[in-house]
Design a protein around this nucleic acid. Structure first.
Lengths: 352, 352
DNA sequence: CACGTTGCATGCAACGTTGCAAGAGCCGAG
DNA sequence: CTCGGCTCTTGCAACGTTGCATGCAACGTG
């Protein structure tokens, strides 16, 4: 049987209420009483029952983080930051994954989720309209901003970021720049926005987007990048650069190029998106768009905190920054030594 | 104000208890009553209050998964499997990370964790003795098995796996096989066990372990692998193979070798440990020890379920299997074409 | 000395739910 | 017609905690 306030109170010879005061650091407790209660707590191994506390207080002290997949590097790295920052605010983060299953996504949100005071949600297959309808705990949306909605949202400008990535490939002299990562089968808008940025950059360079250089994928993993790259290499027009909508796709593309004996960046330059840890150490290291994960995490937590205080306030829009990080996979030297752009032996890779 | 059983009952003109019966699918409810109650539930948007339910039932339906780091590929991939399998058993998984902080680890375990019925814990800085002392919810240990304890444990034979990995490098003809990944500053036994397996394999091959080929690391990430590999390359005795205690270390080592213009596997063969997704697509693809993650997840959930039914039963020991997966990084051809052991163009990498 | 103030401790009730046990109405068997 | 057993429904109490209000004593001040 686990110890309760009652048993501790009996043990210490005080009232239940006094024990509660000690546990909650209520100021007006005599030192002697406090010591006695603490002794009793230690002896009985008392732990507050969080269910009861939540029931009484109406709050949990926990927030949910709902992502499509826990094992995706981008999300797990972001989750890690959120958990760390939330802790400094006295919040516990409960992570859950939807695996892109709309039903599961719906259940996690609308249904009786585990008791949390609020949620940070990276929607996948659910559209914003449906999300807005679920009147449950305070919600902060994470990811692409598709259309106006009353919901709070934290994210960066996908179109601009994709434009910068593509413009970089133009700047280093690439002629046939492919795009990998659209997902026409999803309501999710991320792919469309990145494609739009890609188009804008091409037009800004006076070029006409070529649909034969745009490849759709089923998911955004390495395996999908391999498939997409192989499909590109089998087409009549072979690209000399590929903008991949995620780093994972990019790493898959690099793998596929290695299989064909093609060199990165000499034969094909690659740019990814997300700045996952892997890309900083891959061979070659990966040029990518690096969203500011700390900023995203902070934005989510701030916005969620504000929303919890004022549930009926207007929807807030937080735009975070990003950065183009140029590494080996898009180096400018087209005919340099096989060793990643002629870097001197012994130098460590530049890590941002 | 959120709807409660009471408000639904008032709305439907029945008792609170009857509403509860409907919500819990109690069999003896007249169809008409059930329909009326369900209508009221829908109108009011009633959702069960989980805190109250937990308080009353004494159970949560949730289990905790405590890992050192959420963003580590091995743990995030394992977590993903556990979450998926737990769901089929009607359990929610709450993931939390300790970041190797003993204090945080202690607090998550002993302290008032979020209400869970049991926990799967991958200990890092806490030794088993301390874990055994914390008398809280049912616990299943994950990872290396160090010494007997009353606690349930799921894991594989680290010594044997490390022996197999090293024996493989011997078999492909490597002479100076280094080991990267000991962590003398941790109480954690994993590093010691893998080193032991490494030693066993060397001795079985009639060789004497050379301390100059053993490198300690601070953590087990890619960056640590880079540092370790560079340190190895600066020593008088340069290895022609490296057994890294994690895939992340191995990927860091490969990166460092690329910086020096050394080829993998021609100049140095690499074997990792964990079979993370990254290693299946890296350039070159990574030979590794692949623990059966499904088996580990199932083992944890089964053992935990048993422990929750019988809190005082004897500690159980589940040993899972693993597999040596040979990929490009330890290919046998020492002088083949620069392109990963001369694989034919167009073939996809072999993915296990 | 009377009074208000402060420090400390307490009792009561309620959060929303479910276990228990029993009540109400109905049916068919004896 | 009576009675036992069935289906359906209900009231009561309790899970462990905290908000509120209040009681009690000791203190300083006028």
């Amino acid at each position: 049987m686990t110890a309760s306030l009652r048993s501790v109170a009996a043990r210490a010879g005080v009232s239940v209420r006094t024990v509660s005061n000690v546990v909650n650091d209520f100021p007006h407790v005599a030192p002697a009483t406090r010591a006695a209660v603490q002794a009793a707590i230690a002896e009985l191994g008392y732990r507050p029952n969080l269910a009861a506390r939540q029931l009484r207080r109406g709050r949990t002290g926990a927030i949910g983080l709902v992502v499509p997949e826990v094992h995706s590097p981008y999300f797990s790295q972001l989750a890690s930051v959120i958990v760390r920052l939330a802790e400094t605010r006295g919040l516990t983060v409960l992570i859950d994954q939807t695996e892109g299953d709309p039903e599961r996504e719906r259940r996690l949100l609308g249904g009786s989720t585990f008791g949390v005071d609020g949620m940070i949600v990276s929607p996948w297959s659910l559209d914003v309209a449906e999300l807005a309808r679920t009147d449950t705990v305070p919600l902060v949306l994470l990811g692409e901003r598709s259309g106006r909605s009353a919901l709070d949202h934290v994210g960066f400008d996908n179109v601009a970021a994709a434009r910068d990535a593509t413009a970089h490939l133009v700047a280093v002299g690439r002629q046939r720049i492919a795009a990998v990562g659209t997902q026409p089968h999803l309501t999710n808008d991320t792919g469309r926005q990145r494609l739009e940025g890609y188009h804008q950059a091409l037009r800004a360079a006076g070029r006409t987007p070529d649909p034969r250089l745009e490849v759709a994928v089923r998911a955004l993993h390495r395996a999908d990048g391999v498939v997409a790259m192989e499909s590109l290499l089998d087409r009549p027009v072979v690209p000399d650069a590929v903008f991949c909508f995620t780093d994972e796709l990019a790493l898959g593309a690099i793998r596929a190029l290695a299989d064909r004996g093609l060199r990165v960046p000499e034969d094909v330059a690659i740019v990814g998106f997300d700045d996952i840890e892997d890309g900083r150490f891959s061979v070659p290291t990966l040029t990518t768009i690096a969203p500011d994960k700390e900023q995203i995490a902070t934005g989510c937590l701030d916005t969620l905190a504000a929303r919890m205080l004022d549930p009926d306030g207007a929807g807030q829009e937080v735009v975070t920054t990003y950065e183009l990080v140029v590494r080996q996979s898009s180096g400018e030297h087209r005919n340099s030594a096989p060793d990643q752009g002629g870097r001197a032996p012994g130098t460590t890779p530049k890590i941002h």
